[in-house]
Amino acid sequence: EADPRLIESLSQMLSMGFSDEGGWLTRLLQTKNYDIGAALDTIQYSKHPPPL
């Protein structure tokens, strides 16, 4: 049985245009305790590393 928090967070992320191919988004949301903001921060950080 999927956690209702996961279903809600995942559906919101999917509606933003993200995909869960391979389950990466599910794993990220689980790691971030279903916090969409924290997940988005992680995605943003990985796409744009800080300048040295």
Rank of each mutant, 00 (worst) to 15 (best):
residue 3 D to E: 06
residue 25 L to T: 03
residue 17 G to S: 01
residue 24 W to E: 14
residue 35 D to M: 01
residue 44 Q to Y: 12
residue 27 R to C: 07
residue 22 G to R: 07
residue 2 A to V: 15
residue 9 S to E: 01
residue 39 A to F: 00
residue 22 G to C: 06
residue 12 Q to L: 10
residue 9 S to Y: 03
residue 32 K to E: 10
residue 37 G to Y: 10
residue 46 S to P: 12
residue 8 E to M: 09
residue 40 L to S: 01
residue 51 P to Q: 11
residue 37 G to N: 08
residue 21 E to N: 09
residue 40 L to F: 05
residue 28 L to V: 08
residue 35 D to G: 01
residue 23 G to D: 02
residue 18 F to C: 02
residue 22 G to I: 00
residue 13 M to D: 01
residue 30 Q to R: 11
residue 31 T to R: 13
residue 23 G to Q: 09
residue 1 E to T: 06
residue 19 S to Y: 10
residue 51 P to N: 15
residue 11 S to V: 06
residue 10 L to T: 02
residue 26 T to C: 03
residue 13 M to K: 01
residue 17 G to T: 02
residue 12 Q to G: 04
residue 40 L to N: 02
residue 11 S to P: 01
residue 19 S to V: 14
residue 17 G to P: 00
residue 5 R to W: 01
residue 48 H to E: 12
residue 41 D to V: 03
residue 18 F to I: 02
residue 16 M to F: 12
residue 18 F to S: 02
residue 11 S to I: 06
residue 34 Y to F: 12
residue 29 L to N: 02
residue 20 D to H: 01
residue 48 H to D: 13
residue 24 W to A: 10
residue 42 T to Y: 07
residue 29 L to I: 05
residue 43 I to W: 02
residue 52 L to C: 15
residue 11 S to Q: 14
residue 25 L to K: 03
residue 2 A to E: 14
residue 49 P to V: 11
residue 9 S to N: 06
residue 35 D to S: 08
residue 30 Q to F: 05
residue 24 W to G: 09
residue 4 P to A: 08
residue 32 K to R: 07
residue 42 T to V: 14
residue 25 L to V: 08
residue 46 S to T: 13
residue 20 D to K: 00
residue 37 G to I: 05
residue 40 L to T: 07
residue 48 H to Y: 14
residue 6 L to W: 00
residue 37 G to S: 15
residue 10 L to K: 08
residue 3 D to H: 06
residue 1 E to N: 03
residue 51 P to M: 12
residue 5 R to S: 07
residue 3 D to G: 03
residue 39 A to L: 02
residue 6 L to P: 03
residue 19 S to F: 08
residue 45 Y to N: 15
residue 21 E to W: 00
residue 43 I to K: 03
residue 39 A to E: 02
residue 7 I to D: 06
residue 6 L to F: 10
residue 29 L to F: 01
residue 11 S to D: 08
residue 47 K to P: 14
residue 5 R to M: 11
residue 4 P to L: 09
residue 30 Q to H: 05
residue 35 D to V: 03
residue 26 T to F: 00
residue 7 I to R: 12
residue 51 P to Y: 14
residue 36 I to F: 02
residue 7 I to L: 10
residue 15 S to N: 15
residue 32 K to I: 08
residue 43 I to M: 12
residue 19 S to C: 12
residue 30 Q to W: 03
residue 43 I to E: 07
residue 8 E to H: 10
residue 33 N to E: 10
residue 36 I to Q: 05
residue 20 D to Q: 00
residue 29 L to Q: 01
residue 39 A to Q: 03
residue 23 G to Y: 00
residue 27 R to I: 07
residue 23 G to C: 04
residue 44 Q to V: 08
residue 32 K to S: 11
residue 1 E to W: 02
residue 52 L to M: 12
residue 37 G to W: 07
residue 47 K to F: 06
residue 12 Q to I: 14
residue 47 K to A: 10
residue 6 L to M: 06
residue 49 P to F: 08
residue 35 D to A: 01
residue 45 Y to W: 12
residue 15 S to E: 15
residue 42 T to K: 06
residue 43 I to N: 03
residue 40 L to A: 04
residue 7 I to E: 11
residue 31 T to A: 13
residue 11 S to F: 02
residue 25 L to I: 06
residue 42 T to R: 06
residue 11 S to K: 15
residue 12 Q to P: 01
residue 35 D to P: 00
residue 39 A to I: 05
residue 48 H to R: 14
residue 15 S to H: 15
residue 34 Y to R: 03
residue 13 M to P: 01
residue 4 P to E: 09
residue 15 S to K: 15
residue 48 H to T: 14
residue 12 Q to R: 11
residue 27 R to N: 11
residue 19 S to K: 11
residue 39 A to M: 00
residue 4 P to Q: 08
residue 15 S to C: 08
residue 26 T to E: 03
residue 47 K to G: 13
residue 14 L to D: 08
residue 22 G to P: 02
residue 16 M to D: 06
residue 4 P to D: 04
residue 11 S to H: 06
residue 19 S to G: 07
residue 22 G to T: 06
residue 29 L to E: 05
residue 47 K to S: 12
residue 43 I to A: 05
residue 13 M to G: 04
residue 10 L to Q: 06
residue 38 A to W: 04
residue 7 I to A: 13
residue 36 I to A: 08
residue 34 Y to G: 05
residue 36 I to E: 05
residue 23 G to E: 09
residue 26 T to S: 10
residue 42 T to L: 06
residue 31 T to H: 10
residue 35 D to F: 03
residue 34 Y to M: 07
residue 5 R to P: 05
residue 23 G to W: 00
residue 1 E to M: 13
residue 34 Y to Q: 04
residue 2 A to Q: 14
residue 17 G to I: 00
residue 43 I to L: 12
residue 28 L to K: 01
residue 11 S to R: 15
residue 12 Q to T: 14
residue 28 L to P: 04
residue 1 E to V: 04
residue 16 M to Q: 06
residue 39 A to K: 05
residue 44 Q to F: 11
residue 46 S to H: 12
residue 45 Y to C: 14
residue 18 F to T: 02
residue 40 L to M: 13
residue 14 L to M: 14
residue 38 A to Y: 01
residue 41 D to R: 11
residue 20 D to C: 01
residue 37 G to F: 13
residue 48 H to M: 15
residue 5 R to K: 13
residue 35 D to K: 09
residue 27 R to M: 04
residue 42 T to A: 14
residue 8 E to N: 14
residue 21 E to V: 05
residue 24 W to N: 13
residue 45 Y to F: 13
residue 21 E to K: 04
residue 30 Q to T: 15
residue 29 L to P: 03
residue 38 A to T: 06
residue 8 E to G: 06
residue 19 S to T: 15
residue 45 Y to A: 15
residue 32 K to T: 11
residue 3 D to L: 02
residue 25 L to Y: 06
residue 26 T to L: 01
residue 27 R to G: 08
residue 31 T to N: 06
residue 2 A to R: 11
residue 25 L to C: 07
residue 40 L to W: 06
residue 16 M to N: 07
residue 13 M to A: 03
residue 12 Q to E: 14
residue 49 P to H: 13
residue 50 P to W: 07
residue 45 Y to G: 15
residue 38 A to G: 08
residue 16 M to Y: 10
residue 34 Y to D: 02
residue 21 E to C: 06
residue 34 Y to E: 03
